Simulated assay, not measured.
Amino acid sequence: MAIYAIWNNKGGVGKSYLTFQIASEYARQNPTKKVLVVDLCPQANSSSMLLGGIEKGEERLTDIHTTSPRKTISGYIDDRIMSPYVSPNSGSSYITNVSQYNNSVPSNVFLVVGDEQLEIQSSKVTSATFSGPQDAWRIVHLWVRDLIADIQSSWNDEDCCVFIDCNPSFSIYTELALTAAERLIIPFSADGSSKRSVKAVLSLAYGVRRYGGDPQSEFYLNSNRYSMSLPQIYMYIGNRLTQMNNSSAGAFKTVVNEIGEEIWNVWGGSSNLFCIHPNGSSTPNNRRAFKNMFQYEVNDANTASVVSGALGIPISRLTAGNKTIAGKNVSVNQTQLDKQVPNIVDLVGNID
Rank of each mutant, 00 (worst) to 15 (best):
L311K: 13
V332M: 06
I237N: 07
N246G: 07
N245M: 05
E262G: 12
N257C: 02
I233N: 14
L311W: 08
I263K: 02
Y234R: 13
V256R: 07
T242D: 11
N265I: 03
S270I: 08
N329F: 12
V330S: 10
S227L: 09
T283D: 10
P314A: 04
E262V: 12
K328Y: 13
S316Q: 09
N272R: 15
I237Y: 03
N285V: 10
D300V: 05
S227F: 03
V256P: 00
T242P: 11
N239Q: 10
I233A: 12
P231Q: 11
S223C: 15
L273K: 09
N224G: 15
Y236L: 10
S229T: 13
M228C: 05
G268L: 15
M244N: 15
P284C: 00
F290E: 06
S223M: 14
T242M: 10
G321A: 03
G268D: 10
I237A: 04
L318D: 04
A289I: 02
Y236N: 08
F252Q: 11
Q295P: 04
V307T: 08
S247M: 05
I237M: 07
C275V: 06
N239P: 10
T319A: 10
L241K: 12
V330N: 14
S316F: 09
S229L: 13
G238H: 04
I325P: 10
S305E: 10
G260F: 00
Q243E: 07
S248D: 08
W264G: 00
M228A: 04
G268T: 11
T254Y: 07
T303C: 09
L311C: 06
I315C: 06
Q243Y: 09
T254N: 11
I315H: 00
N245Y: 06
N222M: 15
N224P: 08
